[in-house]
Simulated scan of single mutants.
Amino acid sequence: MPLWPVYTGTRTPHDGIDELPPPPPWRAFDGGPALALPAEADDAFAGSPDRAHRAETYRATEETVQLVNAALYLRRPLLVTGPPGTGKSSLAYAVARELRLGPVLRWNITSRSTLHDGLYQYDPLSRLYAARRVLSTAGRSSRAGAGRTGNEGVENHLRLGPLGTALLPHTRPRTLLIDEIDKSDLDLPNDLLNVLEEGQYEIPELVRAARDTPVAQVLADGTDARVPVERGRVRCRAFPFVVLTSNGEREFPPAFLRRCVTLRLRQPDDEQLAGIVRAHLGEPDEQARRLIERFLSRVGGGDLATDQLLNAIYLARASDLGAESLDELAERLMPYLGLGPQTDVF
């Protein structure tokens, strides 16, 4: 029998992803040649202690567990919405850690982001300079061939982006975090529809070069390793676990929403906040509980996020200020201090 849930939210790594049932017939993909996950899959957070901490301490609700599994079973993107600080981006790292899906591929969206940016980057100028160097060398040396050599090849001036890498034909799904999709240009969600629906894309520069180079070795995102791309076409094998996050700053097209599993995260209550504090900083003491109460009394206005509470509690424990001074300092810090730009720690 298939395993449900595959993602349990227990924060214990396992190989349950191998127990996923076959995809629905309309979401089956057959890309190749098959690629294994990166060699660092078992140590996905090496060199990133901040991301490792977020993955290890993430506390998933029952609704989160159910909808993550729905996205995994249906091979659909997961659209996660909610206020800042509720753990939208941390969820991607937590799932990748528990299911051993390797390093998370992250695409941070701005108003200037385009679909092309996510798929691949090609530098025609560097190729032109390389071709000139080859011609110059050929003119000085009779041993130099007039054909394609060294850096003259297209693939040496092209690197896959996070979306393009996630859609490679891996035998296990990669995790792709498309962060703050609501900050994108109005056209990007619609542009993503076809790629995420079909699970494939083309690289025109490699398609044109396929006569001379049917299999190009291309750099993948986040690594110096090269992967084979046949005739300029990439098609996934295991559909990636795609997490799109949104702070709710805009509406999305109905066609885009129909193709996503949607999860709405809410501000945690007092019991959940105590659990979050416990996971990050240990058992809440009297001072921490007082700060939690103050946080809850003000969070309804939308001006506070969970990471601000954690910062105030950490500072209270790390300093030797008296209770009155601590209260005053926390009051000053909570409206403004976060862990960093758009950081989730839930």
Rank of each mutant, 00 (worst) to 15 (best):
P5K: 13
G16E: 05
I17A: 12
I17F: 05
P23D: 08
W26Y: 11
R27Y: 02
R27W: 06
F29V: 03
G31I: 09
L35R: 07
F45E: 04
P49V: 02
P49Y: 05
R51F: 08
R51V: 01
A55T: 00
T61D: 07
L67F: 04
A70T: 12
A71P: 02
L74S: 12
R75C: 06
V80P: 01
V80H: 10
P84A: 15
S89M: 01
A92W: 03
V95G: 05
G102K: 04
P103W: 13
W107Q: 14
S111D: 11
L115C: 08
Y120A: 10
D123C: 02
D123S: 09
L125G: 02
R127V: 03
A131G: 09
R133D: 15
A138K: 15
A144N: 03
T149L: 12
T149M: 07
N151I: 00
E152D: 12
L158C: 06
R159Y: 01
L163D: 07
L167W: 09
L167E: 12
L168T: 05
T171D: 08
T171Y: 01
R174E: 11
T175C: 09
D185M: 02
D185P: 00
L193C: 01
N194K: 09
V207A: 12
V207H: 08
R208F: 13
D212K: 10
P214R: 12
A216W: 04
Q217T: 02
V218Q: 03
A220C: 04
V229L: 08
V229D: 06
E230T: 08
R231K: 14
F239V: 02
V243E: 03
L244S: 05
E249P: 03
P253H: 15
P253W: 12
T262C: 14
G275C: 04
V277I: 09
R278T: 15
A279N: 07
H280Y: 07
L281E: 10
L281N: 00
L281A: 11
P284F: 06
R289A: 11
I292V: 14
V299P: 00
G300C: 12
L309A: 12
L315K: 01
L315I: 08
R317G: 09
A323S: 10
P335L: 09
L339F: 10
G340E: 11
P341Q: 15
D344A: 13
D344E: 14
